[in-house]
Design a protein around this nucleic acid. Structure first.
Lengths: 244, 244
DNA sequence: CGTCATATTGACTTTAGTCAATAGAAGTGG
DNA sequence: CCACTTCTATTGACTAAAGTCAATATGACG
């Protein structure tokens, strides 16, 4: 973890992408009391079925949401990079319908729901940002669903790698055309709904075709355009501004 | 279409499920000016890429959201029954990332975004209901994604039929243990991400196993418990109160 | 009655899953 | 630093699930 921020600045920056924050809303957010909490890779940040009294902003690290089935399999539902409000929806929808897991050493800021509701009452405009955040989450989920349902596993992996590249680039976690692959192949399989073995084979196929290169836990994109092309990837759904 | 309501009463009833609406919020909603619009089966209600200035509440009929891929395939992303806010998210997230299609003769009420924003400013509590609606939409989408990724097509179909049963029952569209199947097998395939042929075979397998019976465009559930069991269905994610 | 959409079925192909073994890498305690 | 354990990744052989293509049936409807 390098230079973890200990303020909600990454969230402010994200919200600014919707619409520059009005000064009073910005100040309200900056005045939220929050509780910093660290997690090791593999730690559970929140458990399905709980009724959280706080929502968390990811400040550093990497985490994902997942649902477990009784048979023991799991579906990964979302990935989060620093600046993301991980479980804002738990503010209004309880109990939590999925768990949240740290994939790396992770730092989050937890903000009490009562403080959030108080700010919403005082600054109605804040609700626009909250709704935007939830809507964006929905748009990304819909894109995942579309990719799962309509594309081959080869294309799915290409699409996932594209998404990671763009989202990580936005938060300065891409160096050149390479980034750390924080997911295991088993996790990738649980994102795409395919077996780990098949993930392995498809990744090697992408590598064979020159669309990616792999180091240990690292992905290089020698030809982003070609990867975007085969993935049918259009970054618009991420609603990202240009990288910093 | 029987006795289509021409007020936003179905939406009020849905919002009441989150938390009984405070009188002033209820009145605000009732005072929204809206534009009634009818669609025939197959009509496009909104097109991907548009920047709508209104959001629609489904009053009668049935519609779904879909994304088209360049290759010509499509993924169906959500189904809507009367009372649903179909595209509330377009209030804050433009352009629209999917199209909306009427699956049956359909009646919607369209409410201008400026009116919605005005109410949000005047009644901050309204935002809780909007956020709840969006969060619920997300929860259903996550359940779909989990089913797509982790279950066999046989189980997926069982799950979809369970969801339809519970959601339609809530809005009084189930008679006894049967309901009209408004989806074609091709549409079901585009929901689950499987081919139409395979939908047909899996439906017949469900029938053979006594989990469903089929008439023309009609589904009977002779043994709901068994269907729920094989689907691994838990209605909690729909956040429905008891049927009326 | 003819047309169109939808549903059904068979034959065959392709994709992806399963099982099992091995290899490599990372972390731990001594 | 080494022996050991534990993840993680890789590969082969085989199986199962689902897709594709094509033909036919069925039903709704003008």
């Amino acid at each position: 973890m390098n230079v973890p921020l200990r303020t909600l600045a990454p969230l402010l920056r994200k919200f600014d992408e919707y619409r520059p924050l009005p000064a009073e809303v910005r100040h309200a957010i900056q005045s939220w009391p929050f509780r910093l909490q660290e997690y090791a890779a593999g730690d559970l940040i929140a458990r399905e079925g709980e009724e959280p009294k706080e929502s968390a902003v990811l400040l550093d690290g990497f985490c994902f949401r997942q649902k477990l089935l009784v048979e023991g399999s799991r579906q990964i539902l979302a990935l989060h990079v620093p600046g993301d409000f991980i479980d804002l929806h738990s503010l209004v929808l309880k109990p939590l319908d999925h768990s949240i897991l740290a994939a790396r050493p992770t730092l989050v800021a937890k903000i009490g729901h009562s403080d959030l509701f108080q700010s919403l009452d005082a600054y109605p405009q804040l609700s626009h940002y909250f709704m935007w955040d939830m809507a964006l989450d929905g748009a990304i989920t819909r894109q995942w669903m579309t990719t799962m349902g309509q594309r081959s596993s080869y294309e799915q992996l290409a699409h996932l790698i594209c998404e990671l590249f763009f989202r990580l680039r936005r938060v300065r976690l891409v160096k050149g055309n390479a980034f750390d692959m924080v997911l295991t192949q088993a996790e990738i399989g649980d994102i795409c709904g395919i077996s780990m073995v098949h993930v392995n084979r498809s990744l090697r196929a992408l590598e064979r075709d020159g669309l990616i290169e792999r180091g240990r836990r690292r992905i290089v994109l020698p030809d982003l355009d070609a990867l975007v092309q085969t993935a049918g990837f259009d970054p618009a759904y991420l609603h990202l501004l240009a990288p910093d």
